[in-house]
Nucleic acid binder design. Structure first.
Length: 591
DNA sequence: TGCTAGACTTGTATTGATCGTG
DNA sequence: CACGATCAATACAAGTCTAGCA
């Protein structure tokens, strides 16, 4: 009926011709194949359907709760108490987190306690009225011992677990979409637990309830073998919607939002979408000058809404800010993006140090990561901002005549498929390309990698992808330094010996020493490069931009141009995700 | 026009596996 | 070979954006 093919095999075999027609209009590939592929492409996109055939085995559920052994004690107000399973389970969620800062936060404790009480029997409920009187220490110790025991398991036991996991992966971790076997991204249902919101989240500590088959909607094709629910249970629904890409979904109880099971980034469906994203960004490259001129003109508009739109777009373009959708107050942490900036988030300085018209940004963005930046802007922008601030309170919207929907509608008119986030993709990718051109230095491979990382870093800084310095940072830096010093000494010694051996005219010995010197020199250089890289990377996270913003073809082309093995830039998973680019891009690829 | 549900991308934190070293 | 450091994989939260409805 259909043939099953490994995804990466297909990617390696097929796309050359298929992608070529998008890369260059002139392709030398077989015309017939080209035509077929074009038809295949069109078939795929015209009616919005994402697949024709989809078969999978459904999700893997969290294991049922196993009550604690009797030796594990819980005390309330100093008195021993045995909890019934439902309340005990929720108590273990809290007990496991005792070392975490969360459990000291008022909001977390309050939310937890409220939801915990809902799981109690009426007797438990009447006794347990104060979280401060609960003693979870016994439970906490038990779980610590458990995790310790897991670490101490014998090789055989560990091997057994590994094999079991592998078996589950093989059975549930793949699906068949159209003619290919594809890896599923998250085939396990999230287990119950306490909700851990980021930042100042009003719902932190609430109980994330257990998901049952009755909560799950299955999506697959009619003519496939439908997944079976676990014995004695039923799915909420089985549907056959090929306009969407997900295999299963359920509604989560904290925010009431929908969670999905979808395919791995290595899958065709994700890869094509990713590629499309970068093609949109490349189209923006062609018209970005026009758009920039346009918004600069709009700074002078008679209409306030147009000026606001133009200034916001300028920020999105220049600073790579996110769009900034409105959020429901009290449902989530108070974070903002460009369109939702408030008066309190910026400061204006007509003069600051030796710069004019400086705007200072200070706000919490996605995941409550702080964005702090001071930048000089053009006088017109500055004057506009002053105007927007007139008669406003700190809590008022900076752009009161603008939201993401208005902005995106405008962008759509400027270019087909253009939205606010395309600017982030475009600016990230173009920055990488430029930086790679500027920074590329000597032939030494580790130094080349360093310059790649620097280019990557420039992007991460632009996108504000920060991280807290790793806890082990100082120590690992020291470790590196202690390696560098002996290497220096050795080098010196080797050089001296080398020189000395010239005298005895034993050519062989000289050669040996020369090699030794060279080896140590290389080692030393490698260490120094490593140390520099790490220092510069202290509080910047490179992963997010590498995975989501940088057109992988730029990196692939760079590798090909300088003969750098792709493995130095992308690990196995990343190579799978970017298989399309690795296959497609030649050394002269231009973003 | 505004609102919401839904689908999909992006992001950090945590967990698990692997690697290099004493 | 045990151990900690490091890197990769996983988990899941938090964004963006669209479509459809009143």
């Amino acid at each position: 009926m259909y043939s099953v093919q490994e995804s990466h095999v297909r990617l390696a075999q097929l796309p050359k011709t298929k992608y070529d027609k998008y890369e260059k209009n002139t392709h030398k590939c077989d015309l017939l194949i080209g035509v077929l592929l074009i038809r295949w492409e069109e078939e795929r996109s015209t009616d919005g359907s994402k697949w024709r055939f989809l078969e999978h085995k459904g999700p893997v559920f969290a294991p049922p709760y196993e009550p604690l052994p009797d030796k594990v004690k819980f005390y309330y107000d100093g008195k021993l108490m045995k909890l019934a399973a439902p309340a005990e389970e929720v108590a273990t969620f809290f007990a496991k987190m005792l070392d975490h800062e969360y459990t000291t936060k008022d909001v977390f404790r309050k939310n937890f306690f409220k939801d915990w009480r809902k799981e109690m029997t009426s007797e438990e409920k009447s006794k347990i009225t104060d979280l401060n009187k609960c003693n979870f220490a016994g439970m906490n110790e038990y779980f610590k011992a458990q995790s310790e025991a897991r670490k101490q398991m014998s090789k055989e036991e560990k091997q057994k677990i590994k094999e079991d996991n592998e078996r589950i992966l093989q059975e549930y971790g793949f699906c068949i979409m159209d003619n290919h076997k594809e890896r599923i991204g998250n085939f396990r249902i999230e287990p119950p637990g306490l909700f851990r919101g980021r930042g100042d989240h009003p719902k932190m500590g609430m109980l994330k309830r257990r998901i049952r088959p009755e909560d799950i909607i299955i999506n697959c094709s009619k003519d496939s073998k439908h997944p079976k629910p676990p014995p004695g249970t039923k799915w909420k629904e089985v549907r056959h919607d090929n306009k969407v890409t997900w295999l299963a979904s359920w509604t989560e109880n904290i925010q009431g939002s929908i969670k999905y099971i979808m395919l791995n980034p290595s899958s065709r469906i994700k890869g094509e979408k990713d590629w499309q994203k970068y093609e949109t960004a490349r189209r923006l490259k062609k018209c970005v000058d026009r758009i920039r001129n346009q918004y600069r003109e709009d700074w002078k508009s008679k209409e306030m809404r147009i000026r606001q739109r133009a200034v916001a777009l300028y920020f999105i373009d220049k600073l790579a800010l996110r769009a900034g959708n409105e959020k429901e107050e009290g449902e989530t942490a108070d974070t903002v993006g460009c369109c939702s900036l408030r008066v309190e988030h910026i400061n204006l300085y007509p003069k600051l140090d030796d710069q004019e018209y400086v705007v200072e940004f200070d706000f919490l963005g996605k995941d409550s990561i702080r964005y702090y930046n001071r930048i000089p802007v053009e006088k017109r922008v500055f004057k506009n901002l002053q105007l927007f601030l007139e008669n406003k309170q700190p809590g008022d919207d900076l752009f009161d005549r603008l939201n993401t929907s208005i902005l995106n509608k405008h962008l759509q008119e400027l270019m087909d498929g253009l939205t606010a986030k395309v600017f982030r993709t475009y600016n990230a990718s173009i920055t990488l390309q430029q930086q790679l051109k500027e920074l590329s230095c000597c032939e030494y491979v580790p130094a080349k990698i360093l310059s790649y990382n620097r280019a990557n870093r420039a992007v991460a800084i632009l996108c504000n992808h920060q991280r807290a310095p790793p806890k082990t940072f100082e120590k690992s830096m020291q470790n590196l330094q202690t390696k560098v010093i002996p290497a220096r000494k050795q080098l010196k010694a080797a050089k001296a010996e080398h020189k000395a051996s010239h005298d005895d005219k034993s050519k062989k010995a000289v050669e040996v020493k020369r090699k030794a010197v060279q080896r140590i020199e290389e080692q030393l250089m490698k260490l120094q490069v490593q140390a520099t890289d790490r220092e510069e990377n202290k509080q910047i996270a490179l992963g997010t931009s590498k995975l989501n913003y940088l057109d992988p073809r730029i990196s692939v082309a760079w590798c090909k141009k300088f003969g750098i093995p792709i493995e130095k830039i992308y690990n196995k998973t990343q190579r799978e995700k970017f298989a399309w680019a690795i296959d497609m891009a030649e050394k002269d690829f231009e973003f």
